[in-house]
């Protein structure tokens, strides 16, 4: 078959995927108030963004939530992956199945079930409820990332380290952790991004005490056009791009 047809097709789809993003970036530098016509180059929407104290606070809140959710889910997820990999225990299949179900379920199903739980036990909706919810939906992704790394891991490596005189602790520090490190970092970055991007679950389990960025954006874009959102979106895009390049670089570098 000729080569130009599939290639043109690929190019066309990529074009469609990137046009909205390009429009967003270009319009973030637009001086015009209305948001549709080009009114010259300007940074006014970026200024407006950082002048908005509630917005800045929401940014910090989101960043802190994403950092903590990614860290906690990486810790628990890595331990879970290790347990699934190293131990034989009853209900292993069930545990695996539960993680898979969490990953596949529509977010909204997870969201209402967690809301029901939090209200039932009388927990105040805010940072803690957001953290618990975000860790829960990040967890399976971390487990899968680490498991993939462990499945390529030679069972004999820990034994080789012990054989050469390393204690269990030293073996974990010098062999086990360095070998799964790329997966831990990749899992952490994935968790961070998922948390930062989440709208559906956060809509349900957040409270007035802790406003986060996606919900603030949500309330802004529901009605009309807000040019600040262009600026904010561009910043988020650059941010995710850096994170993504970082994680891909880590994964590629460690592939052997």
């Amino acid at each position: 078959m000729s080569h130009w047809l599939p290639r043109t097709y690929l190019a066309l789809v990529y074009l469609l995927l990137y046009v909205p993003i390009a429009v967003l970036v270009v319009f973030s530098f637009n001086d015009s108030r209305t948001g549709y016509e080009w009114g010259g180059l300007s940074l006014r929407w970026y200024e407006a963004l950082f002048d908005n104290r509630a917005m800045v606070r929401a940014m910090w809140n989101s960043l802190w939530l994403a950092l903590s959710a990614a860290t906690v889910s990486t810790l628990i997820g890595a331990l879970t992956a290790l347990a699934l990999h190293r131990y034989r225990f009853r209900g292993k299949q069930i545990l695996n199945g539960m993680l898979f179900v969490v990953m596949m379920s529509p977010e909204i199903v997870l969201a209402i079930s967690l809301l029901a739980l939090f209200l039932l036990v009388g927990m105040q909706l805010g940072y803690v409820s957001l953290l618990l919810a975000h860790v829960t939906f990040c967890l399976p992704f971390v487990v899968i990332t680490v498991m993939a790394r462990l499945s390529g891991f030679d069972e004999r490596l820990p034994e080789a380290a012990r054989d050469l005189g390393a204690s269990d602790f030293v073996m974990t520090r010098t062999v086990l952790i360095p070998v799964i490190m790329p997966a831990l970092l990749a899992g952490w970055l994935l968790g961070f991004t998922l948390s930062l991007d989440d709208v559906v679950v956060s809509t349900f389990v957040s409270g007035p005490t802790y406003e986060i960025l996606p919900l603030r954006i949500y309330s802004m874009v529901r009605v009309g056009l807000k040019p600040e959102v262009n600026a904010l979106g561009t910043l988020l895009l650059v941010f995710s791009l850096v994170m993504l390049i970082l994680s891909q670089w880590i994964l590629l570098r460690s592939r052997r």
């Binding site: 004999r156 080789a160 070998v179």
Partner: peptide
């Protein structure tokens, strides 16, 4: 095992993938 004066050559070598040849032997 770490306190036995015996050492093992493993079936699939079990070399530490994140270390150089020198560091493997020096371990």
């Amino acid at each position: 095992p770490e306190h036995r004066p015996l050492n093992t050559v493993f079936q699939n070598y079990a070399l530490f993938p994140h270390m150089t040849v020198f560091d493997n032997v020096a371990y």
